[in-house]
Design a protein around this nucleic acid. Structure first.
Lengths: 228, 228
DNA sequence: GATTTATTTCGGTCGCTGCCGAAGCATTGA
DNA sequence: TCAATGCTTCGGCAGCGACCGAAATAAATC
């Protein structure tokens, strides 16, 4: 009946705590070495190796050999979106313990979500851009307006993927800390990429968290009328 | 670190073959009894009861008591979307065996996808409506045009959820048999509901499959210029 | 009240898999 | 060539959980 077995296979892979940790670590968007992932997962390197082998066989992650390091990253945006959708369900469920930590505060403020920006920063950007009619965001879909296109290209955002398209849609993404929408998809990815280029944001080592640089603070204030 | 444990918990629930069968059966959109689900899952009623208890505790399914029957259904659209996204990843992975059956052919032709129509029928509808500029579908998002609004209300589709909104977005949904887009979200749900009201389509007993009635054939030809 | 049907709870078996210690490759550097 | 580092493979243990038989609860029917 249908393809339930295949769903189960993939879900079972994500269903192990150690592997879930690995995938969440990779949700930061960076490629990480097996050893880094072992630390993130909280298990030994041998065990991690086994997990990575399975994830690789199922093509949830891809491998890049570089010298004696082996870098793993998520296989693609679909995998990131799957993790997000699971998170969405998990957080709609019964309230669970989540002891707070300093890292959590950092994550709540700003973090990468595979290829775009989430957290208060992501939500704030979406809110400001909506308010100025640069984007229109609905629960199911979103669109960049003409004014938004002009704005983004003035900012230097790479819009090459928008060529040849009459409409520029973007994927709204429900933030799990704020329970509000932010901008995902190709537009969100391009925006995040540009922010890195401008050095407005920087990755926090060994974490999905982002820090906003002083240049970022002034840039965000100037272009987005947004103060962190 | 982050909320990986919660992701793992939900994924582990979906990761068991019997539970995956149950959830896929419920993806048809109907509420099913525990016994029906036991048959669908291919395990004993006792075992099914245990599974349903867990799914209920995690709020992946909801329960409706009716006499001595207990009807279960998916807890909401998020759960359906999660299953779809997992399916998406599963099918992007390594090719697997899937022995074909007559039921598979029926499913391939037309089926419900939680609350909207998928399969060749769903893809065909989306394609025809796109061609006539009633909707604009992108990979990440979609929109109903003004012409589309007029068309749908002429058809008697319930557009109440569109009131008060400037734009009517709809969620594009990648079909796992056709690998092409169809219309999901609130618009897809309203369209499917109207098709049932008009008796254009009917559910096949104990399956997600749909049959197109003679009335449906002529209606689809007339309104959508679509022949099955 | 007795019987049938729908569903859950209990108890015990069994298989799978995650885990780490130890050992084995592979790559880099002295 | 030898050592150090990064990562994987092998082997054995231990624990969780899916499964079903048997029995208990609940609701409808006779």
């Amino acid at each position: 009946m249908s393809n339930a077995p295949q769903i189960a296979e993939v879900a079972a892979l994500v269903g192990d705590p150690a592997r879930a940790n690995i995938l969440c670590a990779l949700l930061g968007g960076r490629a990480l070495t097996a050893t880094e992932l072992a630390v993130a997962a909280g298990v030994s390197p041998q065990t991690t190796s086994g997990h990575l082998g399975k994830l690789f066989a199922a093509r949830l992650v891809v491998l890049m050999k570089q010298g004696r390091h082996r870098y793993y990253r998520l296989a693609g945006p679909q995998v990131g979106q799957m993790l997000e959708s699971i998170m969405n369900v998990a957080l709609a469920g019964p309230p669970r313990f989540q002891p707070k930590s300093r890292l959590d505060d950092e994550l709540r403020l700003a973090r990468t979500c595979y290829d775009h920006i989430a957290g208060m920063l992501g939500v704030g950007l979406a809110e400001r851009m909506s308010a100025r009619s640069l984007v229109i965001l609905g629960e199911e879909a979103g669109e960049v307006t003409q004014a938004g296109m002009d704005f983004l290209s003035k900012l230097g955002v790479d819009l090459s993927f928008m060529r040849a398209r009459r409409r520029v849609f973007c994927r709204p993404c429900l933030d799990w800390t704020e329970r509000r929408l932010h901008i995902g998809g190709a537009v969100g990815a391009a925006l995040a990429q540009r922010f890195f280029e401008l050095a407005w944001i920087e990755r926090v080592r060994d974490s999905r968290a982002l820090t906003v640089t002083p240049a970022g603070r002034s840039g965000l204030a100037e272009f987005f009328d947004l103060s962190i």
